[in-house]
Deep mutational scan, measured.
Amino acid sequence: TTKIQIRLADGSRLIQRFNSTHRILDVRNFIVQSRPEFAALDFILVTSFPNKELTDESLTLLEADILNTVLLQQ
């Protein structure tokens, strides 16, 4: 498993454990389930350093190389 910290656009944080085989789409779905107010918003996930937009949501967390990292919601 891996721990992902997500810094949300409103300044708050979410921390969740995922399997390395989960997909970026699963992280997006977790955000929307945790904070339904973001469901209607068009947002992207970005790595904190170096900044990289995670546009291919079909990638696993392992394939995207974002295990144990911080993601930013923009």
Rank of each mutant, 00 (worst) to 15 (best):
T55F: 05
R7G: 00
K52E: 07
T69L: 03
L45E: 05
R28A: 00
H22P: 02
I31S: 01
Q33D: 09
Q74T: 00
S48Q: 13
P36M: 05
L54W: 06
R13Y: 13
E63I: 06
R28Q: 09
I44L: 04
T47C: 07
P50S: 13
R23T: 11
F18C: 03
L71E: 15
V70K: 15
T69E: 12
L72T: 12
S12R: 04
I44A: 07
R13M: 12
E37H: 09
L54D: 01
S48N: 02
D26M: 01
F30C: 01
E53C: 07
S48F: 05
D65C: 11
N29L: 08
F43P: 07
D26Q: 06
S48H: 08
F18H: 00
D42P: 12
E53Q: 12
T47R: 14
S58A: 02
V27Q: 03
I44E: 07
V32K: 04
D56N: 11
L54R: 03
D42R: 01
T47H: 08
S58F: 09
L14N: 06
S12H: 02
V46D: 00
T21Y: 14
E57T: 10
Q33S: 12
V46Y: 09
E53T: 10
Q16R: 10
D42K: 03
R17T: 14
V46H: 08
D65M: 01
I31K: 04
K52H: 09
R7E: 15
A9R: 02
L72I: 15
H22Y: 04
V46G: 02
V27R: 02
A9M: 12
L8I: 01
A40M: 10
K3Q: 09
A64Q: 11
I24F: 04
T2S: 09
T1M: 06
F43C: 06
L59K: 09
F18D: 01
E57I: 10
S34T: 15
D10L: 03
L71N: 07
F38E: 09
L54Y: 00
L59V: 10
S48E: 15
D42C: 00
S34D: 00
H22E: 14
L62K: 15
S20K: 14
T60W: 01
L71R: 03
L67E: 13
K52D: 01
H22F: 05
F43V: 03
L59G: 04
R17I: 11
I44M: 06
T1V: 04
A64H: 02
P36Y: 02
P36K: 00
L8V: 03
P50T: 13
T60K: 06
T47Y: 10
I15Q: 06
S12I: 00
D10T: 04
I44K: 12
D10E: 07
A64C: 15
T69I: 09
F30Q: 00
E37S: 08
E53I: 09
G11I: 07
I66V: 15
A39M: 09
L71D: 07
T69C: 10
S34V: 12
Q16F: 01
E63N: 09
H22N: 09
K3S: 11
A39P: 03
R28C: 02
K3L: 13
L25W: 11
I15C: 12
L14F: 07
H22Q: 13
E53G: 03
R35H: 11
T21C: 08
N29A: 08
S12C: 05
L41Y: 10
N29G: 07
R13D: 07
H22S: 15
I66H: 09
V46C: 14
K3G: 04
L45V: 09
I15R: 03
I31M: 00
T55D: 04
L72E: 03
L59S: 01
F18I: 07
L61K: 03
N19Y: 04
H22A: 15
F43R: 03
P36R: 09
S12M: 01
S58W: 12
P36L: 06
A39K: 13
T2F: 15
F18M: 05
T55K: 13
K3Y: 14
L59R: 02
T21L: 05
E63W: 01
V32C: 04
S12T: 13
Q73D: 09
I66C: 14
N51S: 13
V70H: 09
L8M: 07
D65Q: 08
I66S: 04
L71C: 10
L71P: 06
Q33N: 15
E37M: 03
D56R: 03
T55G: 10
S34H: 07
T47L: 04
L61S: 03
L54H: 06
R17M: 09
I24A: 06
L62D: 12
F49Y: 13
Q16W: 01
L59M: 14
Q33R: 10
F49V: 13
F49I: 09
R7Q: 15
Q5V: 12
L61E: 09
F49W: 13
G11D: 11
L45I: 08
I31A: 11
L71S: 13
L8R: 00
L25F: 08
T21P: 02
L62A: 15
F38S: 03
L8Y: 08
L62N: 05
F49S: 14
E57H: 04
D56Y: 04
F49A: 13
I44D: 09
L72Q: 00
Q74H: 13
Q73H: 09
Q16T: 09
F49N: 15
E37Q: 05
I15L: 02
T21R: 05
I4P: 00
A64K: 07
S48I: 05
P36I: 00
S48C: 10
A40F: 10
R28N: 04
A64G: 05
T21G: 11
T21I: 04
D26W: 07
D56P: 05
Q73A: 06
Q73V: 15
I15P: 05
G11L: 06
D56I: 15
N29K: 07
L72C: 12
N68I: 02
D56K: 03
